[in-house]
Design a protein around this nucleic acid. Sequence first.
DNA 1: TCTACCACCTAC
DNA 2: TAAGGTAGGTGGTAGA
Length: 932
Amino acid sequence: MPMDFQILDADYEVINDSSPVIRLFGRGADGKSVCCFVPDFEPYFYLKASGDLNTVARLVEETFTQVKKVEIVEKFEPIGYQKTKTKMLRVTTHLPREVPEIRDEILKLQEVLKAEGKWEVYETDILFRNRFLIDKDLGGMVWVSAEGGSVDPAKYIRTNGSGNSRCEKFTCDTSILASGFNKVENLTLAPLKYLAFDIECLPLDGGMPSPEVSPIIMISFSFEPEYKGHKTLVLLAKPVEGLNSDVWSYTDETEMLNQFFEIFCDYDPDIVIGYNHQDFDIPYITDRVKTLVSEGKAINPVVGRDGSKIGYRKFGLITRTEMKGRVVVDALPLVRRAFSLKQYTLRAVSKELLSREKLDVPPLEMEEYWLDKGEKFKKFVDYSRRDAELALELILNLRLLDKYVALAQVSGSLLQEVVDGGQTSMVETLLLKEFGLRDRVLLPKPDDGVSAERYAMSSDLKGGEVLEPKKGLLENVLILDYKSLYPTIMMAHNLCYTTVVTGDRSDGVTIRPPSGGEFVPSEVYKGIVPSILEDLLNKRTKTKKRMRGASNENEYRVLDATQLALKILLNSFYGYSGYARARLYSLTLANAVTSFGRSNILNTREIINSTIGKIILRNKTALLLDEAGKLSPPDRVVELSVAYGDTDSVFVHCKSSGDLSLEEVSLIGNRLANIVSVSLPDPMELEFESIAKRALLIAKKRYALWFFEPKNSGWEDKIKVKGMETVRRDWCELTSITLNRVLELVLIEGDVDQAVEYVRQIVSKVRNLDPAKDSEIVESLVLTRTLTRKIESYKNKQPHLTVAENLKKRTGVVPSIGTRIPFVITAGKGLFVDRAEDPDYVRENNISIDVDYYIKKQILPPVERILEVFGVKMSSLDFDSKQKGLFDFEAKKPEVKKQEKPSSEKESKVKVQEQNLCEKNGHASQSSLFDF
DNA sequence: TCTACCACCTAC
DNA sequence: TAAGGTAGGTGGTAGA
């Protein structure tokens, strides 16, 4: 009977030192964990040699015992348009590791043969499991139906020298030897098992624990679905009486650790979750086990489905962990990527995203809590449990994995690679597959030297065009944007590594981008990248169509994640082409794409400003002037002009004698999008996206819109802020709150007076700040900045460095790179960087805050940039003397009438799937304190 | 006082 | 076996 399962992980094992067997790990539709063994897949690579290939082939076979066979094949070379294929050798080895082993040796044969030209090897650095998945058209999270009988996994476990077989710890429910398999279309997710865990250590002095000396005293689990009736478990490294049924105690740390691994394997999770466990918990457990074993303790730290042990590897600054057959998912980087937050401590993240409080035990009092026999001990246990719960909830409640599962399915990369890595592995998987199908070989990854050269060249890559904004307040602004601009440019102009003219020339006309270079048209050779993009775009269109007919919420969510994944992949190819460490790097290609983009947006502006210029609004149609014929009285002329644009968007200001309704403006929007679109090559398309009833343009990449979007037969309105201080995390919350309110008053209410009054009150509140009473305001004065590198490597002083150094002095703990460090500016003399201080420290020590800094540097400048549009001037030097007013009112009344805000539809609560959802600024009124 | 530079974060 | 890209605003400091 065939076995259906979803691929979670893949690797290979060598049996009898002679042949590799692929192992596909997965979860079956029946809920069983599966290991599927696939024999008979062989490792290979390509060699481009000069001279007589038969001679070279024989020589390679004779010289290397690792070589199983050599065939002559015809392939295109990786880059450039070619009229004909080149003869190359396909070298098959016995074992996967032999491919890189003989790669360099084989090139030396060139000297032996005294052959001319340059020999090259291709596809020598493809992981064997990936080679298998790509060649067999499988991939991560894909469903497979495997034929075959069950088999003893022991046959496929390599025994090491000590004869210590891992098979007794092989945790898959089912093992099968595949005689055949098929990919299966299936939208559902297998019934996966999720486990989150968290450890507590006892450091010596409240500082960072070190695995050589600080024991692990507690480990908490959170399960989904539950384990033997338990949603959570807490393990204790000491005997304790009278515990709840979900707190299990052991004689000592060693026994607890052994039980940790025992329970772990018994539960057999597919997804192993933690919060920062890649960087902390897993390495810590690994090293702690090592320490204990070296002290003579017996611990068998198995976590892999094949019986492999816990471990980690460090690459530069990052740590990678692997658990065979499972996927290790650290919630921290996923939350970082999905949400723009000021801080990413588990405490801050849980509060912000789950509305749940983290419990806490002060590091210095841990020992006291641990030794306590009453409430404190109970609190400690609950604190530990809560951390495991929160990690699991972040992943499951926020559905953080959906996107990655879809990306794995659509790209063909394994889920672990997609979760850990960037876009590179996904793009390369797609490229390898398509290159293979089109008889083209792919280059190896560039070495450090080559990438360094490329980095140096990269300054030659020009990007998108940003149009100078018409600064100020505008009414009725249409927002149009190009649907997937760069991918559609690549498709429209057949821009690809495989179509760029580098040697061979085609007969007819070629495509010449504004940036230079030359590409053959698709009639001559259809580019591989454009083909991949076309496929992705078609799939996306189909997926969106299926979404509309989705029968339930779950199906809808899966489809939505899929279309989002397709969009991400579509947009990855351009970036990849200009990425110095890419296998395929082409500045010519990347520059071609952006240069077409730049000329396109400039063209669009020209068409709208000049070619169209004005449009006639008549009854239910928007007409071009020359179509209009005679104007009759209710007709209106609308003047169009592009007010702003960035890369793929244009903001069109619609000026008319009378009022324009949203419907009328959208009529114009659709008409414009249409006119421009028909002038473009397929599949480029300008889309009418939305309307800004009012738009406040401050500078390039900085603006605020009162934004209306068509939503199921009505309009949904909101304020959309881009680039301004409200959305920047290096400004304090008080700035966001103040600015948001000002924007609301100015954009929606059209009431500048009230905005000024509001700012005045905020300023006076800050000036008369009483830290004891107004702790909430103090809270809102906290700034944060990311520590982007090692402290020593900064050239200039920075406020967050000052704080990092203070922290190091006081606690010995150095914040790690990538951490956002909070700080406030304290009162005193001298440079402001030297007065940055840790907010907790300020609170505990009653240090006073530099209110003047906050007023002059945090509140007023951003507010000023907005209000000066309305002629409000601030005598920003005078407000120290309380006699004078804060503002010189030249009270030029804005040309904005007060307007009722139309009732908007109820917004769905949290749309967590959206990328970069930044909850923070969504509701400035969360703090009623600042509502006057 | 002006300017060049570093640093950060954002838009697309 | 680390890592998609460029454009751009703003603030702070050091040094002319």
